[in-house]
């Protein structure tokens, strides 16, 4: 079977403390929502084929917890958890996210706003990650580096264009 990829995720950094990812899916929004909130379905995509998702706990109610764990092929464990803050079925989820293993992560969680908009049977997913500081954002993107990343990125685009 051939799966037609619906597109590419587009990442932008709208502000120093935000990471925005958008992606279109060739499926109605209720199915995308289901894939994000149903444990046995989460386990089938979230590992990104880089390992096995071993735990996908979801308590889908405001104040309810979630915890997803995967064992990467390289052997290490990757775990996230958080709490649901807002739930609009099939349309919108707001939840906190903590990457386990980072000291003090629970005191300073990222807040994710996931929105789904459907048009002609296709769904536009928008995933906005908001953090308390640029430093935390940089850490999320697996880098301890600091500095004007958005500006650097804008500049890079310019340079790339100028280099043709």
């Amino acid at each position: 079977m051939t799966v037609i990829s619906s597109g590419k995720a587009i990442l932008t950094l709208p502000a120093d403390t935000q990471i925005l990812i958008t992606r279109e899916f060739a499926a109605p929004k209720h199915l995308v929502f289901k894939a994000f909130t149903t444990p046995e379905l989460i386990k089938r995509w979230w590992h990104a084929k880089r390992g096995d998702a071993t735990i996908a706990f979801v308590d889908l109610r405001v104040g309810g917890r979630w915890r997803w764990v995967m064992i990467a092929d390289a052997g290490f464990e990757v775990a996230f958890h958080g709490e649901y803050r807002e739930i609009v079925p099939n349309e919108r989820l707001v939840y906190t996210e903590v990457f386990e293993g980072v000291p003090g992560g629970d005191d300073d969680p990222a807040v994710i706003t996931l929105t789904l908009e459907e048009r002609d049977g296709r769904t536009l997913l928008t995933q906005l990650t908001e953090v308390s500081s640029r430093a935390v954002r940089d850490m999320i993107m697996e880098s301890g580096m600091e500095g004007g990343m958005q500006d650097a990125y804008d500049l890079l685009e310019e340079v790339a264009i100028s280099l043709g």
Partner: peptide, 20 residues
Amino acid sequence: WVKNYEQAWNERFDALDELL
């Protein structure tokens, strides 16, 4: 650095495409 993070989500979403 930016592309790596984007790539990780791309791989996840590609797997999600198949599931959908």
